[in-house]
Amino acid sequence: MTAEIIVVTSGKGGVGKTTTSASLATGLAMAGKKVAVIDFDVGLRNLDLIMGCERRVVYDFVNVVHGEATLKQSLIKDKRYDNLFVLAASQTRDKDALTQEGVEKVLDGLSEMDFDYIVCDSPAGIEKGAHLAMYFADHAVVVVNPEVSSVRDSDRILGLLASKTRRAEKGEGPVTQHLLLTRYNPARVAIGEMLSVKDVEEILGIDVVGVIPESENVLTASNNGIPVIVDTKSLAGQAYSDSVARILGEERPLRFVEVPKKGFLQRVFGG
C-alpha cells in the first residue's frame, strides 16, 4: 500500500494553509488513518506550533533529506493521537536545502512505514518550496479566502497542479482538486460586501469541498497549540470535520454559510 499524498496549497500567503494542514491531518487521524504531516515551509517553522509539539522538535525534514537523521528519529508523535506524526521544517536552512530527489526519498520512506496519508503544508508563493510540496501530490486542498487576490492566486495554483506535478508529467491522471474556502463571513456576504461561495465556485469553475467560517476559535486554538478541529464545539472545528469527511468521500451538507437566524426566545433573552 502506498500512502496518499495531499498537498495543502494556495499561492497567496496567510490564507490558512497551516491552520488547514493541522486540522486536516488531525481529522484524518481521528478517522483512524495513520497520518504524517510535513512542514515544507523551510526557514519558517510554524506547523509545530499549531500542532503544539514545538518543544519536542529534535530533527527536522531537512535533516532527513540530507541523511543526518532517520525518519523514525525525526517524526514527532502527536500527544492526542497515536497514529498522527509531525515532521517539522528546518529553521536554519534556506529553501534550497530541499531537492526533488530528497523529498521523494522521504515520501517513499513514509509509504514504507505504512502511512495512509501524508499531508504536505506548502509555503506561500509558486517558487521552489511550493513546487516541491505539490509535485508528488495525489490530492490537493487549495485554500482560498473570499477576496480578489486570493481567488486569482488559487486559479494559478489550480493551473500548476494540472501541469507541474508528477501525475501531470507522467500522465498518471490528474491530481484531485479540493477547493476549501476559509475565513468566510456569512453576514458580510449577505450584505454584498464579500464574495459568496457561489461567486468563488463560478469564477474558478470548481465546487468547494468545504467552507470554514471566520472564527475567533482559530486564534484560541493556535494560542493553545491545539488544531481547531479538536475543538468540536467551535463552528470552525465542525466545518473542518465536515470537510475532512467529504475528502474521505462522505456526503455532508454545507453548514455555517448562512447568517444564523435567531429564534424569538433567543432574540429576547440573547444567546
Binding site: 477576496e147 480578489v148 481567488v151 486569482r152 486559479d155 456576504v189 450584505i191 454584498g192 460586501e193 464579500m194 464574495l195 459568496s196 461567486d199 463560478e202 469564477i203 474558478l204
Partner: peptide
Amino acid sequence: EATASVARERLRIIV
C-alpha cells in the same frame, strides 16, 4: 457598499 459584485466581475475577466 455592495462591492462583492465588483470583485466578482473583475475576477471573472482576469481569471
